[in-house]
Computed example of a mutant assay.
Amino acid sequence: MSMKRNLLVAVVMAAGMSATAASAAECIAPADPGGGWDFTCRTVGRLLTELGIEEAPVQVTNMPGGVGAVAFANVAGKRADEGDLLVATSTVGVTQIAQGKYPGGVDVMRWVGMLGSDVGVIVVPAASPYASLDDLLGALKDDPTSVPVAGSSGAGGWDHIRLLMLADSAGMTGDAYKAIRWVQFDGGGPAVTQMMGGQVGAVSTDLGEIAGFVQSGDIRILAALSDDPIPAFPDAPTAKAQGYDVTGYNWRGFYTGGEVSDADYDGWVAALNTLYDSEEWKAAAEANGLIPVWRGGAEFETYVEQQAQQMEEISRQIGVIK
């Protein structure tokens, strides 16, 4: 643990703990470079160093596989007590846990904090024949197999669930919207790349993962799944504004191993809270379409437990699990 994080621990614990020698922290991004988890690790790691919260640069390790399951298993089985380790996660990961797709429940890890909430989007290539959400959902209603749609989660994952919620809001029956052709990629960036190559017709993902493609003009946002327009892309229409009462936020945060000491855990909570309060984090978050939101420590652990229960209920309702 870095010496500065030890000082934060001392404040939080109100005890005379001695500082240990500085060591480099590590952040595992459970996906390939370019996705939302990779962005979370790299941006947070960079700012922790630049702001002096961490004394040494934070090492980022990409560990793709199983929509986060490989990293989860690695930490649970081999690194459960490593106090210098963070793992990026989100609503996507908790949904996978709720559906039994990870080797353990939310109680296996210690949930450190969330720094912001990403907004779900439905995007198409710039030259797509679908000019609006109505056009896309109309095509799927006429023939659910006509437009392959991709995302960074498997069937029944959060990206897929958000699409099915829109299909349901459009009046499609359960049997019809379950027939939509869903293609999984390990990250929103790879999904968009394949869409631009013609392999799929639309992508359901998080804006933070693919904001660069929007800025470059390669793709268009058919719908932002937010209550209000996204500050970074105010012209992107919301699903609500188009008559579909659907939102789909995806928080961005971190867990650490279930056997990490209270001292190390509280140090990470304090460090991330300090980062969250900085103007640098607010600017980085908003530039990538994130809405800054803070939950940390015990409050965040309760929130994750409640969200896992909610995702399990939704998954049962749409028939993903029994």
Rank of each mutant, 00 (worst) to 15 (best):
P229S: 15
V11Q: 14
Q242T: 13
G35L: 08
I230R: 04
A15V: 13
P190W: 09
L48S: 00
A29W: 03
I97K: 00
Q99C: 11
R5F: 01
S261M: 04
A191F: 11
A88G: 07
D227F: 06
P64K: 13
P125G: 03
D134C: 09
F254K: 03
W158F: 15
I318G: 05
V87Y: 12
A88C: 07
M195A: 04
G105D: 11
R110N: 04
T173P: 06
W294A: 08
T49L: 00
G208P: 07
W37T: 06
G243R: 08
Y244T: 14
V67F: 15
K282Y: 00
I291E: 03
Y265P: 10
D38Q: 06
L140P: 15
A191S: 15
K240Q: 15
E313I: 14
W251V: 07
Q317S: 15
A14N: 15
G156M: 13
A241H: 07
S23V: 00
I291G: 00
G156Q: 08
E259R: 10
V200R: 09
Y303C: 06
I318C: 01
D118L: 08
C41T: 00
D175F: 01
A10D: 08
G217R: 05
D107S: 07
C41R: 15
D186N: 14
S261G: 02
P231N: 14
W111A: 11
T49V: 01
Y244C: 03
H160W: 05
A283R: 14
T256W: 01
R252L: 15
E54R: 00
E55F: 12
T238D: 01
A29V: 04
G113P: 00
G16R: 10
A56R: 15
L136N: 14
K78C: 11
L137W: 12
D262S: 13
S90Y: 08
G104F: 00
L8Q: 14
G208R: 09
R252N: 09
V269C: 04
D168G: 09
M3F: 12
G105L: 05
P57I: 06
A211S: 09
G100L: 01
T274G: 09
G257N: 03
N250F: 10
V320S: 08
I291Q: 07
P148M: 05
E54N: 05
L275R: 12
K282F: 04
G83I: 02
G297N: 09
E55H: 10
A271R: 02
Q317V: 13
A71F: 11
G120P: 11
R110Y: 05
Q96R: 07
L51S: 08
I210F: 05
V320L: 07
G171R: 01
T95M: 12
T91P: 02
I314A: 02
A29N: 03
Q199W: 11
T173F: 02
A14G: 13
S315D: 13
Q309C: 00
I318D: 09
E55I: 09
V92K: 03
S152T: 11
F72Q: 06
E209Y: 12
F233A: 14
V11M: 13
K282V: 03
G100P: 12
A155I: 04
V9H: 06
A155H: 01
V203G: 02
G267L: 05
N74L: 05
